[in-house]
Design a protein around this nucleic acid. Structure first.
Lengths: 205, 205
DNA sequence: TGTACATCAGTGAACGCGCGTTCACTGATGTAC
DNA sequence: TGTACATCAGTGAACGCGCGTTCACTGATGTAC
């Protein structure tokens, strides 16, 4: 933090600043010049670490997926032997993450990097996050699965879509918290209710 | 379309141009100056119809919700007596709409107008769209409902979240079409699969 | 251990850009009488 | 039916803005010998 000429780890510092800015404001507020300013560096310095703004945003999104994956793994720890309970815990972690970092969450799913154009780091981080969820769906459904991988795959996608939809609608303010209820509490309650109702379909796969 | 001084219906023409631009490009491409240009009018003219860019975007989003509502009502027409089949048809319409108008769909759920700050026209259009879905969920679940309005409300939210999540993930390119499958076909198939698996939970409400 | 030198990671000035928005204006329209 | 006039919906010039990006540069670092 002294006034050395070389920053030390500007790349990570820029990503930090970007996440901070997203949490405090919005995606529009994330500009290379501003991040440079906040990192105490000239506005041209970031170009030594990111080829352009888009590359930096991809790095931010990748970090977001890593955070999301970690949260899901952590909250759906192996304490509980019921894989269905674990799955719901992971879902809750997913939705809670979105509510805590709405702008970051939006960036991650902004469609800014369509399919093939996705940088490998981002692709990889996203894939690893989804894998957590998919694995848990597999565990939760496999025991009773008569209908093979195809049905399990559908169930997996549907589960993901359910929590993703809940997350998005919450972030959009389309689902209301109860009076006096904190956003995180609302996220947890709504996720448990939603997965409770529709989850029955999964069990009987 | 002649070179009259007064346009006639500039307001609607601007909204048309905005939707066209969203479908062809992206939200970033929607600027007041550009819409004016494409409507053949000076760049200051739009200010006689919209107080600023944000007001115009709200108008576009409202129109989007009206389109969405219409599609759902149309595709889930009353031919089929099974309310559950109707509900799935509405869900398919929802997801298909998103796939056909990804950028418009994103704008509608961009979180740009948080709760209270939502212009009345937009608020109303959105509410009317959701009402279609909610009504169908009510029809599909009420017959067997032992648990009262509370459970129905949860089911309603969860159903909405499911199709919303499917739509968002498809729009983001996170769910792949099969080789040779058109985006719309993929949307329909994935929606039917997803609502098929999780819908069982609704039936047994 | 010192020195030469390549490489790396910063600086700061400069550029062009299209945008949103404001302003004084003018031409067209509609209405009261 | 004509006329006066208020109102409405355009025009076009102008402004300031912060941005992304480029460039020649300089200071710091690391490595070969």
């Amino acid at each position: 933090m002294s006034k050395r000429y070389h920053h030390g780890d500007l790349r990570e510092a820029l990503l930090d600043a970007a996440v901070r800015t997203l949490d405090a404001e919005s995606l529009d507020a994330v500009t290379l010049r501003r991040l440079a300013r906040e990192t105490g560096v000239s506005h041209a310095a970031p170009y030594h670490h990111f080829s352009d703004l888009d590359a930096l945003l991809a790095g931010v999104a990748a970090r977001g997926f890593r955070m999301l994956r970690e949260e899901m793994s952590r909250k759906a720890g192996p304490e509980d032997p019921d894989p269905f309970v674990q799955l719901r815990a992971a879902g809750t972690a997913y939705v809670t993450f979105a509510v805590l970092h709405p702008e970051l969450f939006r960036l991650m799913f902004s469609g800014r990097w369509p399919g093939a154009g996705q940088p490998p780091e981002l692709q990889d981080a996203a894939e690893r996050a989804f894998a957590v969820l998919r694995e848990m769906v597999r565990n939760a459904t496999l025991p009773g699965a008569d209908q093979g991988a195809e049905a399990v795959e559908s169930g997996s996608r549907a589960s993901w879509a359910l929590v993703h939809g809940l997350a998005m609608l919450l972030v959009d303010g389309r689902l209301d918290a109860r009076p006096g209820e904190s956003p995180v509490d609302a996220a947890e309650r709504i996720t448990l209710e939603g997965t409770g109702v529709l989850g029955r379909g999964l069990r009987s796969l």
